[in-house]
Amino acid sequence: GGAVAGGYNPNATEVWQEALRIPPVKVYEKGKMRKDVWDLIFANIRYSIVREDLTAQMGSCTLAERHMIDLVNKYGLDVFEAHKEYLYRSTEKMMQAEIKTIPGGVYTGESTVYYDGRNLGSTYKIRVRITVGEGDITFDFSDTDGQTNGFVNGTFTSSASAVILTFLQMVNPDIPHNDGMSRPIKLIIPEGIILNASYPAATTFGNHLCPATADAIIRALAPVIPERVTAGWNNLFCGLV
């Protein structure tokens, strides 16, 4: 949906110009599809493949629900919850052990975003301050430049994903991806910066700030763990140099 196919509207200055906004609603209720909601959604989407994609996602959730119910019925809720927390805690310890292999200290990195989609020659700095403690790590982007007036802005969720994804490439790949993995990781991404724009800013192109976010982190940690970092990610028109 939105003014242009794919949702990437370079002329957008606010969220309403990017796509249809749907708050959380039930597509299925008590096992039955709500056709009114379904029709409302797809009356605003150009491509039928999106319908197929969403159907597949709902199918996978339904299958996962069945398996989880089977586990609870077989072992009981208390046993299920105890084992779940044990898995989370074990994963947390694995991540803490990885963090302890990084020399403790404070490290800074910076990357540049070129062009905000509206103003030729515009540049924005992404700055990160990484504090490595005894089994914990903090990524602080407080000194990053403010949000743009175009669609090259991130949200907290897209920026947090970029941080976690980048850091996971520097640690043991066998660490399970669950809640315990992120417990030793603290993120400070203040509202109002280009990585966490204030509502109702346009944010469609925010996911393409991930390479620049990764580059700032890589530059910060390269001096202390050079064998674990990679070169910068793909460069786009709002990318990094």
Rank of each mutant, 00 (worst) to 15 (best):
Y115C: 00
E29Q: 05
S159A: 15
P184Q: 08
I189Q: 11
W38T: 04
W16K: 09
R219H: 07
Q57D: 00
D78F: 03
Y88S: 13
V106R: 07
V171Y: 00
L209F: 05
H177G: 13
L236I: 10
I69V: 10
A197C: 09
T62P: 05
A162K: 07
E14N: 14
V15H: 14
R129W: 02
N11M: 12
I175A: 10
A202M: 10
I218G: 10
T138Q: 14
V27P: 03
A19C: 13
N149K: 12
E81D: 11
F139D: 13
K186Y: 12
D136G: 07
I41A: 02
Q17E: 15
N149L: 14
Y75Q: 05
E18V: 00
L209K: 04
G192E: 06
T91H: 14
G59C: 06
A214W: 00
F156E: 12
P103A: 00
L165D: 09
I22Y: 02
V72L: 02
L187I: 09
I99S: 12
K74R: 13
P173V: 06
N196V: 02
T148L: 01
A212Y: 01
C61K: 15
A231P: 03
E227M: 09
G232Q: 06
E85C: 01
Q57R: 13
I164Y: 15
S111L: 02
N207H: 04
G150F: 06
R21N: 01
P10G: 01
D39M: 02
Y28T: 13
D36G: 00
A222R: 15
H83R: 13
T13E: 05
K100F: 04
C61F: 13
V50D: 12
V163N: 05
V163E: 07
G150E: 06
M94G: 06
S60F: 03
L240P: 01
P23K: 05
A5M: 08
L77S: 11
P184H: 09
W233H: 13
R228T: 09
L195D: 10
N149I: 13
D116H: 06
G6F: 11
N178A: 08
I194C: 06
F205V: 01
H67L: 14
G76R: 04
I225A: 14
S48K: 14
D215K: 15
K186G: 09
P176W: 03
G135I: 07
I49F: 14
P223E: 08
Y199L: 10
T148M: 03
Y86S: 12
A212Q: 09
V229D: 05
G180W: 15
L236D: 07
A216F: 09
I225R: 14
A214S: 09
D174N: 11
F156M: 09
P176T: 07
V27Y: 01
T204I: 07
D143A: 05
C210F: 06
S142T: 15
V241W: 09
H67M: 12
V15W: 10
T148H: 06
A201D: 11
A202Q: 04
T13S: 08
E110S: 07
A19K: 04
R219G: 02
V25F: 00
F80R: 04
P176D: 12
L195I: 13
P211H: 01
M170F: 08
Y88N: 14
